[in-house]
Simulated scan of single mutants.
Amino acid sequence: MTFGVKLEMLAYAPRKINPRDHLTSALKKPISLRCSHCAEDHSWKLPVEGVLNSHGFVTAFTTWTIHRDPSVYSEKDEEARVKRGSSQFYSLELVSRVLNFCSLTPDPVGQTYPCTGELFMWDSQTEINAFIQRIHEAFSGEGYCVATNKNCGFHIHFGNGKRQPPIKAALGMVGVFACLERHFDQIFPASRI
């Protein structure tokens, strides 16, 4: 019951600021989430590349990664979004780690609940929402913009291992993503979801 998501976007930042580096830095800042154990807010690191666990490393596909995507490019009619010469464009692709639809996944960074000492567990909906929220925060200032156009996409990849989801479970997954549609719409137009 594993899956992954890929978010493609146009990112603009003021000159002399690399949008990819800017987003990478933003994703490495801790976020505050309500604890499922004690109902208090705790600070957590997002599972993004470059954030290490207590052993100093993480294995492949256990963190989100940021890439440049040559298939994403701005159109001439989009130049009105950003003042000419004040911002630079960068095509970004944010690729999730392997997520689990049916159960919580252990935190690859090795974080523990402050209230119990147990290994922190991520819920896939909470994790995806936290990344989308952080993208918005990172590109909400003056000279910053994150957008989509007909060249951008939102991709969902379902696991194809021994435990492929039955049709009923696959329909449930689609239902969950439909419930999260408003979050995705904040970055992507509905036509691209």
Rank of each mutant, 00 (worst) to 15 (best):
T2Y: 09
F3I: 10
E8P: 00
E8C: 06
M9K: 01
M9D: 04
A11I: 03
A11Q: 03
A11W: 04
A13W: 06
R15L: 10
N18R: 12
P19D: 01
R20S: 02
D21C: 08
H22L: 10
H22Y: 02
T24P: 01
T24Y: 13
T24N: 15
S25H: 14
A26P: 03
L27C: 07
K28Q: 07
K28E: 02
K29F: 11
I31E: 03
I31P: 03
L33H: 04
C35M: 14
S36T: 08
H37C: 03
D41I: 10
H42W: 14
H42F: 14
H42C: 09
E49I: 08
N53T: 08
S54C: 04
F57D: 12
V58Q: 12
T63W: 03
I66W: 00
D69M: 09
P70D: 09
V72T: 01
V72F: 00
K76L: 14
K76M: 13
E78V: 10
E79G: 10
A80Q: 10
A80M: 07
R81S: 06
G85Q: 15
S86N: 05
Q88K: 07
F89R: 02
Y90T: 15
S91K: 01
S91Y: 00
L92K: 07
L92Q: 03
L92M: 13
V98Q: 04
L99N: 11
N100D: 13
F101V: 13
C102Q: 06
T105P: 02
P106H: 07
P108C: 03
V109R: 02
V109N: 04
V109H: 07
T112C: 05
Y113G: 00
C115I: 13
G117K: 12
F120M: 08
M121T: 11
Q125M: 03
N129K: 12
N129L: 03
N129P: 00
A130C: 09
A130R: 12
Q133D: 11
I135S: 02
I135E: 02
G141W: 11
Y144R: 11
C145F: 04
C145H: 07
V146L: 01
A147W: 12
N149G: 04
I156E: 08
H157S: 13
N160D: 10
Q164V: 14
P166Y: 08
K168S: 11
A169D: 05
A170F: 08
A170I: 04
G172I: 10
V174N: 13
G175W: 02
F177Y: 03
L180G: 02
L180V: 11
E181D: 02
H183N: 09
Q186W: 06
F188P: 00
A190G: 04
S191E: 15
I193C: 09
